[in-house]
Design a binder for these strands. Structure first.
Lengths: 346, 346
DNA sequence: AGTATGTGCACAAACGATTGAGCAAATAAA
DNA sequence: TTTATTTGCTCAATCGTTTGTGCACATACT
């Protein structure tokens, strides 16, 4: 409760008997450069230690225009997919003494926009955003303001900006192709938020797989509108109500497949005997589910790490805009949730 | 790329033709109080709008000693248990324009200590920490520096500090009691990090349940040393190697039970036929596991929300130290992972 | 007319750091 | 002995706010 005043450069300066400038230079490692004697150096660092000096990052940031702070905006940090990314960003950041300011946009574009405003007024050095996905005007204005920006998971073809995403097209293509190889011909797609690149790319993969196998796409088998659990539940209810029932479901997220499982269970159906399923997003629990789930795994740790490093390089060489997008491969993890149908069953 | 200079109070002041002071007072809603005319008010807010003024939070913080920023230190943000807490803290924070700076201590006390230093130098208004759990000297020094602090999930009896935790004792007591009611008499405890309050309280519940049923505690059935998955795996391997085998396992975390399931599967055993299990931490997937898991649910959302509000009140009434600890009840969620034994089986 | 009260703003000093420029003393060079 | 050079620092401005105090002018009161 002892309301200790903050220790400042001046305190050290006074105690040692030098100027504030000298202290600053010693502590920032510029002693040699400014010809501070070893003696003074010693004294300064010594008493800085003793007094427990900690530089005021606000003051420093105000002066230097560099805060060693980056903003991170995520649609739902409680989703393990995003929190794993966040964790790896944080781990990288800590290595170089940076901090991350976290914002949860709650899948709401308006909140996302507000967050960018707030983060900018907090003078972050850069921004990593997983955009809700529908609008990008605000991202454009960040870009043109010169603030380094990396977007992750979702991207905008219209926006020239560094990004790190999974190869959603390839992931979906492989998954749906696998269904076809297992002789499924009626494969539904439980999609996520419609206008996101994530979703479009997966749909494209879904369609191309159909094309390759010369199976016409039944548009009524593409249902859903968000990456949440509830959507998975509702979508599946709808799909299971159809006659004939689709024999396979491709779920666009971990939460969607959770909802799907509830619906399937409610209808008294079994995976994979009555219906097969593949879910996007590998999770620690995927293999322990009632039927171990075949999934499309994304490189979440790598996404975080790469995004941070990309941002860091943007921050450092402010001019040299290496505006390249990075696409990480996915991997189909084979388990038990897909049944091989007999040819004649079709 | 247009390197727009930052808009400052002076810019507005010049354009309107008043002093910087006046602008500041208008924009901070102190116009009436300082008798600024309506005309001037209009002009100022108008051009502030036009220029897209955003206050520099660094400068403001430097001057006012208030940053509207709080530090959050978490052992592992990728664990849904913690990320759910984090999310709810963020949601509360956003409501009042606060931001949170996130640190992942990676279950490492040293990193936790470093984080507190860094966050303090960033002048956060307060700190919410989920301590790794073994040391608390650094927490004590935060306390005595007067920086508002709330600790969550784990606490220290020796430390007089606001905290929000689950009723781990009661949760464990109920779980183990339930085993006894189901006629189990050989119940193992897969514990977490040993010196944490979380673990001690759960052990106490475990022991008291034994006492109530007059079953002696077999110390060799208490195994493990961390909340991670690997620990669950190893611990279970050890337990399953014993003869006679325990009939039930009480796992201290969601990750531990995941590891346990791997081990159980490897040994070719079935839950609950060969072995029963209850896990701490309800998860979205708990009901979808091969055997739907009976769990001890904690109020994670509430933990976050309450922790933030508690901190907020500490920040506001800096003197009035309402150093109360808050203990949230747990709930035993009954599913299928516990088998009722026949009396004679024992 | 002289004093009191009210109105509407401006001055300038903080906050704690960084940084370009400069200056006195000591030493070296000529 | 005079001039250059080096050594070891200091000065003061600056970043963008906030805030206690003060000041001029107008109006009201006696």
């Amino acid at each position: 409760m002892s309301e200790n005043r903050q220790i400042t450069l001046d305190d050290i300066a006074n105690q040692v008997g030098v100027s504030r400038t000298t202290v600053s230079r010693v502590l920032s490692g510029q002693a040699k450069q400014y010809r501070i004697s070893n003696q003074t150096m010693e004294n300064v660092s010594q008493t800085a230690m003793e007094l427990g000096y900690m530089p005021d990052q606000l003051a420093r940031g105000l002066r230097t225009k560099r805060t060693n702070t980056i903003g991170l905006i995520i649609p739902d940090i409680s989703n393990p997919f995003f929190s794993t990314i966040a964790r790896n960003i944080e781990i990288q950041a800590r290595k170089i003494g940076s901090s991350i300011i976290l914002s949860d946009s709650q899948e709401d574009t308006q909140l996302e926009i507000e967050s960018t405003r707030l983060l900018r007024s907090r003078k972050v050095d850069g921004l990593i955003i997983c955009p809700v996905g529908e609008e990008f005007q605000h991202l454009l204005s960040i870009q043109s303001s010169g603030l380094p920006l990396v977007i992750i998971d979702r991207y905008f073809p219209e926006l020239e900006c560094a990004y790190v995403v999974s190869d959603n097209y390839q992931g979906a293509l492989e998954a749906v192709t696998y269904f076809f190889k297992m002789n499924h011909r009626s494969v539904a797609f439980l999609q996520g938020r419609v206008k996101t690149s994530v979703n479009s790319d997966r749909i494209k993969g879904y369609r191309d797989a159909h094309k390759q196998y010369e199976v016409p796409v039944d548009e009524s088998l593409i249902v859903g509108d968000s990456f949440g659990k509830r959507n998975g539940y509702i979508g599946t209810k709808i799909l299971l109500g159809k006659t004939p029932r689709p024999t396979a479901i491709f779920a666009a997220s971990n939460l969607i497949s959770l909802g799907a499982m509830t619906a399937i269970q409610e209808e008294g159906l079994k995976i994979p005997d009555d219906i097969s399923i593949i879910s996007f997003d590998e999770q620690p629990y995927s293999e322990y589910l009632a039927t171990p789930m075949t999934t499309v795994a994304q490189q979440t740790s790598e996404t975080g790490e790469i995004a941070f490093k990309l941002l860091q390089s943007l921050i450092q060489h402010e001019g040299k805009q290496t505006t390249d997008g990075i696409v990480l491969p996915t991997e189909l993890v084979y388990r038990k949730s897909v049944k091989k149908l007999n040819r004649e069953t079709i």
